[in-house]
């Protein structure tokens, strides 16, 4: 644990890291148990300060608003967690892909960017909508655990949701967050330390609560997904 780690732990727990810093730090937390333990410890130690806020009677109206939404229009998202714990199925089922679209787009896209960038991605994935018909984003994966994401057609997010990018390095590891973002735009994300991306590796974007999935695994609906291909 370096002094810089201690600073980051403190600033993270105080809610002071910028979005990109917080994402990078959370990616580390997913992979460094010692760091995660130190965060949990400081959070628990500071909780007596939260307790000094006292209590405010919440009232039945607030509970009623919550109860109304448990099976409201967002019923799919509001189902209890256990019923949705088979999230990992998302990664293996309904993966029928329009391969020709993927390759055509990937090749066309690469040709277009050769002139403007000297940095070469190791893998490229075209992420398609759930029914496999509409491309929604392109992921360029680099050897240094970063990706460049080029979204072009993503479902608008509700105000209390963010987009979260995931990859599945292998089934044992399970889905790993590459980062979250608010506004669809070309951006670079830095993921945790992972093996180099492989052909066929899955990438997907889900809608998650603000701040990213609280479980560290995808919980929200999948907007787009696709497999990595090696650029020619």
């Amino acid at each position: 644990m370096t002094p810089q780690d201690r600073e980051q732990i403190g600033e993270y727990v105080l809610g002071l890291l910028e979005d990109s810093q917080a994402q990078a730090f959370e990616a580390r937390l997913a992979n460094e148990p010692e760091l995660a333990t130190a965060v949990a410890k400081l959070q628990a130690q500071l909780e007596t300060l939260d307790d000094t806020a006292g209590e405010l009677p919440a009232g039945p109206a607030l509970w009623q608003r919550i109860a109304d939404r448990l099976d409201g229009p967002n019923a799919e998202q509001a189902q209890p967690a256990l019923n949705r714990s088979a999230n990992d199925n998302h990664w293996t089922r309904r993966l029928g892909m329009a391969a020709s679209i993927v390759i055509a787009l990937a090749v066309g896209y690469l040709t277009g960017t050769h002139l403007t960038t000297s940095r070469q991605p190791v893998m490229i994935a075209v992420l398609l909508s759930e029914d496999g018909s509409e491309p929604g984003a392109i992921v360029e994966a680099y050897a240094d655990d970063t990706i460049r994401l080029v979204p072009f057609d993503l479902t608008a997010r509700p105000a209390d949701r963010v987009y979260q990018v995931w990859t599945l390095p292998d089934p044992e590891t399970g889905p790993v967050s590459m980062g979250i973002f608010d506004d669809p735009a070309t951006l670079s994300l830095s993921g945790p330390d992972l093996p180099p991306p492989e052909p066929g590796q899955l990438y997907e974007i889900t809608l998650e609560p603000s701040g990213g999935s609280p479980t560290g695994r995808p919980t929200g609906p999948i907007l787009v997904k696709g497999f990595a291909k090696m650029p020619l």
């Binding site: 949990a40 959070q43 628990a44 919440a58 939404r69 967690a81 256990l82 949705r84 560290g216």
Partner: peptide
């Protein structure tokens, strides 16, 4: 608070007792 309790409803399965108290 409304969002927190909806999130608890959706994500209660992810709570890990070994990592800290439920109040925390």
């Amino acid at each position: 608070i409304q969002e927190v309790f909806l999130s608890v409803w959706r994500n209660a399965g992810s709570y890990d007792r070994s990592k800290g108290t439920a109040r925390g």
